[in-house]
């Protein structure tokens, strides 16, 4: 399992494009927001938590098809399927690798981009906490979507259509934590619900992803 994780991390770091692109996309979307809604800093302060969450979600979405597609093309997935490692574990490790290379950098970059959007001071801590608690769910759910569409030639748009509705609860609770934090309100209820979604998805969805992957490898 560790070998698989290290291999995925190394590939993401060295193969180019995977690691930096998500961050760059996050930056660009955040920069485009003031152009579309105007430079009014009061307005930006209000919408900053939601915009940052949405941008992080989209950055995560963009890199989903890389989780399995490359391994599908070169046959590594078939090797994984015949290895003694259960498919569920392999899928979970792949989701973890995706989070480490995509979600974690987004969490780290979010406060810097918060400055650009005039995020109120109390919001920074909660923005980082909510993203740290919520992005793992995005990776796990996204891996499920990738497992469903891995056999398809033009799976990219379909992947978005399948995954985005599944992201709704995570986005609602995550953005709510960040928004309440920025306004200085109590955050524990949405934060606990967000953590619940992340833990529940991480515990159960690998089984669904593995089932989908087995069907696709059949």
């Amino acid at each position: 399992m560790r070998a698989l994780l290290l291999r995925d991390l190394r590939l993401a770091l060295r193969a180019g494009g995977g690691f930096g692109l998500g961050l760059a996309f996050f930056l660009i979307v955040t920069v485009l927001v003031p152009f579309s809604v105007g430079p009014n800093s009061d307005l930006l302060a209000v919408i900053a938590p939601g915009i940052l969450w949405l941008a992080a979600l989209l950055a995560c979405l963009l890199s989903l098809d890389r989780i399995l597609a490359l391994d599908w093309e070169d046959g590594s997935l078939d090797l994984l399927a015949t290895s003694p490692l259960p498919m569920e574990a392999a899928v979970a490790i792949k989701a973890l690798a995706h989070w480490l290379t995509t979600g974690l950098p987004l969490v780290a970059a979010a406060p810097v981009l918060g400055v650009l959007l005039n995020l109120p001071a109390p919001g920074y801590l909660w923005l980082v906490i909510s993203l740290a608690a919520g992005t793992p769910a995005l990776s796990v759910i996204g891996t499920f979507g990738a497992a469903l569409t891995v056999g398809l030639k033009r799976g990219g748009l379909l992947l978005s259509l399948l995954v985005l509705p599944l992201y709704v609860p995570t986005l609602i609770f995550g953005a709510e934590v960040a928004r309440r934090g920025a306004e200085g309100m109590a955050v524990s209820t949405p934060l606990l619900l967000l953590a619940g979604i992340t833990l529940g998805a991480a515990a159960l969805l690998p089984f669904a992803s593995a089932a989908a992957l087995r069907v696709n490898l059949r």
Binding site: L148, P165, P169, I172, L193, L205, A208, A211, V215
Partner: peptide
């Protein structure tokens, strides 16, 4: 098979979305 799995997972998330909303 794949739509069946999607329907199962989607049902859970549709319910979650209902309460989240």
């Amino acid at each position: 098979d794949l739509t069946g799995v999607l329907c199962l997972v989607g049902s859970v998330f549709a319910l979650l979305s209902r309460y989240a909303v």
